[in-house]
C-alpha cells in the first residue's frame, strides 16, 4: 500500500532541475508527480516515477545523491473540500504529516494526494478504516 518515491539532493544552483529531468527523459522515464522543498542553500526534489529502479540508477550514475522512500498516495474526488476531508481525518487520528503534495489525474475526476507521515503504518490503517482509497505504485502509473 506504499508508493516508492525518489528523493534527490539539489544544491541551489541554476540548471540542476533541468539536468535531472533531461536525464530521466533520455532514459524514457515518466514523471507522474513531483515537488521541490527548498531552503536558502539546498533543496530536495521528490519524484513519483514509473520506473523507480531505473530512475535511481540513472541519477546515481550521474553523480546525484538519491534515496528511495515510501509515501502514501490517497485518491480523493477532485471537488471542493476533497483535501479538507482527508486532512480532517488525519487530524482526528492525530497523524503527523512530514510533507505532502498533490496532482490531478488525467481523467480529471480524481486528485491524488502524496503523504509522508511520521508513522506510516498507523496512517495507512487509519485512512483505510475511514474509507479512503490508497493507491499502489502500479495504480498511480496506470492512471
Amino acid at each position: 500500500m506504499r508508493v516508492e518515491q525518489i528523493a534527490v539532493f539539489l544544491e541551489n544552483k541554476s540548471g540542476r532541475l533541468a539536468e535531472i529531468t533531461a536525464k530521466l527523459a533520455e532514459e524514457n522515464i515518466n514523471i507522474r508527480a513531483l515537488s521541490v522543498a527548498d531552503t536558502a542553500d539546498f533543496g530536495i526534489l521528490r519524484l513519483i516515477v514509473d520506473d523507480v529502479e531505473k530512475a535511481k540508477t540513472t541519477l546515481k550514475s550521474n553523480g546525484f545523491t538519491v534515496s528511495v522512500t515510501n509515501v502514501i498516495a490517497v485518491e480523493v474526488a477532485d471537488k471542493t473540500g476533497g483535501l479538507a476531508g482527508v486532512l480532517k481525518t488525519i487530524e482526528e487520528e492525530k497523524l503527523n504529516v512530514e510533507y505532502m503534495y498533490a496532482f490531478v489525474n488525467q481523467s480529471g475526476e480524481n486528485a491524488v494526494l502524496i503523504f509522508r507521515f511520521d508513522d506510516m503504518d498507523k496512517a495507512i490503517e487509519a485512512l483505510q478504516r475511514t474509507g479512503y482509497a490508497i493507491l499502489s505504485g502500479e495504480e498511480i502509473c496506470s492512471l
Binding site: A37, T39, I44, R46, T65, V66, S67, T69
Partner: peptide, 15 residues
C-alpha cells in the same frame, strides 16, 4: 558533501 548515508527526503533531518 551530502552522501547517501546522511541524505534524507526530509528537510528537517538535513537542517
Amino acid at each position: 558533501e551530502v552522501s547517501e548515508d546522511i541524505f534524507s527526503d526530509e528537510i528537517k533531518t538535513l537542517e
